[in-house]
């Protein structure tokens, strides 16, 4: 026999199923072994009433409560979220009672089953003994009684004698070693792997870009084309003759001062500050031949600039001013002749 040590002691006794006395548990109880110290391990559920201790886990009540929770969850999912999340449906209903009923039923079932299963697992985990105590021969049809006793050596002998009298094939003793619940380390790694996988998944989602790449040309998309030469669209902006109102003249004057006065001078006679540095003196806008030019000709000169014998004398203002602005400058230049 193994030396009897001081503290906790587990006694394992193997029995032939046929030789297993019904009354063993009662005798053990009379011998002073506590109720919950006795465990009977078997390869299949033994329905003898004696062995059963009142189940402490009310699985039925858990299932019912979980079912009610599920209904609440279902109603919240089907109706609540739809109302919280205002999707435009042009006045059409979002919540339909029978639909909420169906989804609530499904959620009830889901939550009920999952909670029952979880409760059972927790219960199993709390019931589980140290795996090593389980003698592999149980599966071949033996029954093992496990007694966890205190160090009281006297009771030990009494129990040992009782077991041998009951016909135990083999009795072993074991000290319960403090083994950490196995697998904690590995579970950590498992959750890490799951974390990495999900981040990968939502990363992928950002990649596909359906219909962002439109084959049609968006505004200002290269290659940029120009409008046809000589054609006039129905609401053409550059051809419209601005109303010769006062407001157009002032605008024309302001733009003239900004863009034209440095060559043509403030009064348009061609005595601007830059004239000294120019090879070709700028035209005197008050001269009768300039005033005689048509608005179109003036507009064309302002837009595309002027070149005499191949040397461009006046730069184009097409880039600086819009069509309307150039029209207003031309209107202002035309008005210079009237006093």
């Amino acid at each position: 026999m193994a030396p009897i040590t001081v503290n906790e002691m587990t006694v394992l006794a193997l029995f032939e199923p046929s030789g297993y006395p019904e009354s063993l548990v009662d005798e053990l109880r009379n011998a002073g072994v506590r109720e919950d110290a006795v465990e009977v391990l078997s390869p299949l559920p033994l329905h003898e009433a004696a062995l059963l201790r009142p189940a402490r886990v009310p699985l039925h009540r858990i299932a019912i409560i979980a079912g009610l929770l599920g209904i609440g969850l279902g109603v919240m999912v089907a109706a609540g979220t739809a109302l919280l999340y205002p999707i435009v449906t042009g006045g059409k209903p979002i919540v339909a009672p029978p639909v909420v009923g169906i989804i609530a039923f499904e959620m009830m079932m889901l939550v009920a089953i999952v909670t029952t299963f979880a409760a059972m697992l927790i219960r199993l985990r709390s019931e589980s003994r140290n795996a090593t105590e389980r003698d592999p021969r149980i599966d071949d049809g033996l029954i093992e009684v496990v007694l966890s006793l205190t160090h009281d050596s006297a009771r030990l002998e009494a129990v040992q004698a009782l077991l041998q009298r009951a016909g135990a094939l083999e009795i072993r003793y074991r000290h319960p070693t403090l083994s950490a619940p196995h697998g904690a380390e590995r579970e950590g790694q498992a959750t890490a792997a799951v974390l990495v996988a999900t981040s990968l998944l939502c990363g992928v989602e950002a990649c596909s870009r359906d219909m962002q790449e439109q084959p049609s040309y968006q505004p200002q998309e290269a290659p940029r084309l120009h409008s046809p030469v000589g054609s006039v669209s129905r609401d053409n902006r550059s051809v419209l003759k601005p109303l010769s109102t006062q407001q157009v003249f002032d605008e024309g004057a302001r733009l003239f001062r900004i863009n034209c006065s440095h060559c043509h001078g403030r009064d348009g006679t061609g005595n601007g500050p830059v004239v000294a540095y120019l090879k070709e003196p700028p035209a005197d806008l008050l001269a009768p031949d300039v005033q005689a030019l048509s608005e179109e000709a003036l507009y064309d000169t302002v837009t595309n600039g002027l070149a005499i014998e191949g040397r461009d004398v006046m730069p184009p203002f097409k880039g600086e001013m819009s069509a309307e602005q150039r029209r207003s400058v031309v209107a202002y230049v035309k008005s210079l002749s009237q006093p």
Binding site: M211, S216, P219
Partner: peptide, 16 residues
């Protein structure tokens, strides 16, 4: 031919 596509209307892709 894609020059003619109307920019105001989305060109649909497959699966739509």
């Amino acid at each position: 031919l894609q020059e003619q596509l109307n920019p105001d209307v989305t060109v649909r892709q497959n699966g739509i």
